[in-house]
Design a binder for these strands. Structure first.
Length: 424
RNA sequence: GGAGAAAUGGCAGAGUGGUCGAAUGCGGCAGUCUUGAAAACUGUUGAGGGUCACACCUCCGGGGGUUCGAAUCCCUCUUUCUCCGCCA
């Protein structure tokens, strides 16, 4: 959520940013927000004035009672009646306008960074880096879901039976390879200075609002209505919320966390060929990195995260590219996002395996995540996160790109983690 | 799940209807002293809104209520602790 004061004072910047995202009715949205903010402040001022009067009267009445001047006190008491009525009225109005303002603010996405390209869709994303050779597969090479079946390492039907579509069962070397990947990713992250945390897989409403999943993505999360808890769609939510309602010292920066969690996504409305096999699941494993940074350092940190993920993909020897997302394709809360895509050779398509973003103060504002700056004033921190990495599509890429007539050749770095070199 | 107790500033801990945004101690920061440090002493030290700056307003776990006036009384929710039950 953007700060109202920022919108008020930087109307043009906001409009320009929204234009880059192709937000419809941006003019109207911003105008309404500014109007609501003005009304809110005017109402608050009026309400405060009456409250001040009431406070004064209450104090005077107290004095009079003490002085045993009951008559005079009763007279003043009468005077409060009208004021209280007015105050109630204004308080209601204040509440309404505050809610209205809040709802408007929830509709405004983050302002894209300067270098974010304009554009409407994935077509307009900027390919800024590509590495790794796309292997030429042998005759009869298979897509990963066929390989999974052939070697009996992932059982989609079994998952269907137990739960439903999008909940696969990993078996044997498949299960072990998953575990190996998780450990390898976590080790890479902790070696790079990220503190490992284990967090709840359910979050409450406040947390879901804190990182921006609510109210924009309500339908994407599994919801336990009985206890009003949400299954996490990403570790970003619980991990970033560690810092909700926190005031840091400048010396606390940078705060770097990593966590492995399963992720749960309803993915309502997405069916078809794109979701075959491991391409899109309702439950999948992911290792996440999260950073809390001083505003002056956050873009440096973002570059660091990008390089970190780059290194992992290079070690895995997978062909990948990095995209700088365009305004139209970027997430609601992000100011700048880099997507990492691995090439799925047998499917002849790129699969997103990581998304690394700087949210600047957008999440911090909702989270009330601040720090004391050098002048002793509270200032919003910057939050960042990225996948490092999402498991299923990495697995898909590995299976497809590393297949040989003899079997799947495990990348060198993973062999110590899984204890075998070949799936056959 | 049942019974009881509790929730106050970074921490500890007073405060049971008005003078309380809140005593006191510890911690933090600044200063005096010192070659420097420690100790001692002095001052300062919650968040948000609002204002050019003041004034002023809100916040004592969350929400609601009683009252001219609530940290203090009532209702409700949440959390923590103790006892009982259940249990990986």
């Amino acid at each position: 959520m953007l700060q109202v004061a920022f919108i008020r004072e930087n109307k043009e910047t906001v409009l320009k940013g929204l234009a880059k995202r192709n937000v419809k009715n941006a003019e109207e949205l911003v105008a309404k927000t500014i109007a609501a903010d003005e009304e809110r402040r005017a109402t608050q001022t009026a309400s405060d004035a009456i409250l001040a009067d009431l406070n004064k009267l209450a104090k005077d009445i107290g004095q009079l009672f003490k002085a045993k001047e009951v008559q005079k006190a009763e007279v003043l008491k009468q005077k409060t009646v009208v004021l209280k009525e007015k105050s109630k009225e204004l308080a209601d109005k204040l509440q309404n306008i505050t809610t209205e303002l809040q709802e408007l603010l929830y509709l405004i996405p983050n302002i894209p960074a300067e270098i974010v390209p304009a554009g409407n869709s994935a077509e307009d994303n900027l390919n800024i880096f590509q590495k790794g050779e796309i292997p030429v597969l042998h005759e009869g090479a298979l897509p990963h879901w066929e390989l999974a079946k052939k070697y009996d390492i992932i059982d989609f039907e079994l998952g269907n039976k137990i739960t439903g579509a999008g909940f696969p069962v990993y078996k044997g070397k498949g299960a072990k390879l998953q575990r190996a990947l998780i450990n390898y990713f976590l080790d890479k992250n902790t070696d790079a200075g990220y503190d490992e945390v284990q967090v709840p897989h359910f979050v409450n409403e406040d947390s879901a609002y804190g990182t921006g999943q609510l109210p924009d993505k309500e339908g994407q999360m599994y919801h336990d209505a009985q206890d009003n808890l949400y299954l996490i769609p990403t570790a970003e939510v619980p991990v970033t919320n560690i810092f909700r309602d926190v005031i840091l010292k400048e010396s606390d920066f940078p705060l770097c966390k990593t966590a492995y969690t399963p992720c749960f996504r309803r993915e309502a409305g997405s069916y078809g060929a794109d979701v075959r096999g491991l391409n899109r699941l309702h439950q999948f494993d992911k290792v996440e990195i999260v950073r809390i940074e001083h505003p002056s350092k956050s873009y440096e940190a973002l570059d660091g995260m990008v390089n970190h993920v780059k290194e992992i993909l290079t070690e895995l020897n997978l062909p990948f590219r990095i995209l700088r997302l365009c305004g139209g394709d970027m997430g609601f809360t992000s100011a700048l996002t880099y997507d990492f895509e691995v090439f799925s050779t047998a499917q002849d398509r790129w699969l997103e395996v990581s998304s690394v973003s700087n949210f600047e103060t957008f999440q911090a504002n909702r989270l009330k995540l601040r720090f004391k700056n050098s002048e002793g004033k509270s200032e919003l921190a910057h939050t960042l996160n990225g996948s490092s990495l999402a498991l299923p599509r990495i697995l898909a890429g590995l299976l497809e790109n590393c297949q040989t007539p003899e079997g799947i050749k495990i990348p060198k770095v993973l062999i110590p983690y899984c204890g075998f070199e070949l799936i056959n």
